[in-house]
């Protein structure tokens, strides 16, 4: 049986094609202003990789902020449910999933069967999501993809007080004016967001193994700060951005 999972995120749409419990195709497209067409494009790209047509897909399940957008979906699943299912397939030993996306942060505790035991969400505030690092990278005039590695070259701790992305932007500008090295500011930014994510994770309890998924998991600066805060190793799947979509595809397959 072939099923598909779509994760319609705030920034990117991710699609996964699943055939008999194996991922055969995946694709990603920027959500832009029209998430529905982005989903169509990603779906076609993923099908191309899997080597099959739309008619071969038995069921499509959608998740993510824009989960109601794709016209070709058959059902929807919550982001928490999709993450839990996805991580259980990839790493069955994981008990705590941390998902940091562009506009939302989540911490989920799962049992040995991949069932959700508890979760906490930080939504609707940029300070606890990828949008924070993005805005700060812009304020520092550093390309987002270089931002993480750049922060690792810091050798000095600088305190950051602002808890709001907009206020933090002004704080960053004043730190630059005070001639604080940019890499130290970058480090402070990653520490600040990691602090907030850690507090959220503590609300559900930190049970190993811990996995980090979502787009922000690509940022090595954030990962370093988070490891330091949690004082433990963190599993980061290679397909960190596709975990939700994989989960959704499994939910589609489970439902039959």
């Amino acid at each position: 049986m072939i099923t598909a999972g779509i994760d319609c995120g705030a920034k990117n749409v991710k699609v996964v094609i699943l055939e008999d419990g194996k991922v055969t195709g995946k694709a990603m497209a920027p959500a832009g202003i029209d998430a529905a067409s982005a989903a169509e494009k990603a779906f076609d790209d993923a099908l191309k990789m899997a080597g099959c047509g739309r008619e071969a897909v038995t069921k499509v399940v959608s998740t993510g902020t824009g989960k109601s957008e794709p016209k070709f979906k058959n059902d929807i699943v919550t982001e928490v449910g999709a993450d839990a299912r996805g991580i259980h397939y990839l790493y069955p030993n994981v008990r705590t999933v941390i998902d940091v996306g562009a506009e939302e942060g989540r911490a989920i505790r799962v049992d040995e069967k991949g069932k959700v035991v508890d979760f906490a969400i930080n939504e609707k505030c940029a300070a606890g999501a990828g949008a924070f690092t993005e805005a700060m990278a812009r304020a520092l005039e550093i390309p987002l993809e270089d931002f993480g590695p750049f922060s690792l070259t810091s050798n000095q701790e600088v305190p950051m007080n602002a808890q709001c992305a907009v206020f933090a932007e002004s704080e960053v500008v004043s730190l630059v004016h005070r001639k604080i090295p940019k890499q130290d500011i970058a480090r402070a930014i990653h520490n600040a967001i990691a602090d907030r994510i850690t507090s959220m994770v503590r609300m559900v309890g930190v049970t190993p193994d811990v996995a980090l998924v979502g787009g922000v998991a690509k940022n090595v600066g954030f990962v370093a700060s988070l490891k330091e805060d949690l004082q433990m190793e963190i599993t980061i799947p290679e397909d960190r951005e596709f975990v939700g979509a994989i989960g959704a595809a499994f939910v589609a397959a489970d439902a039959k």
Partner: peptide, 16 residues
Amino acid sequence: STCVVFAKSEASGLLR
């Protein structure tokens, strides 16, 4: 959106 960062992107969308 309450958050100014998100409201700003929402407004950019409206302008477009």
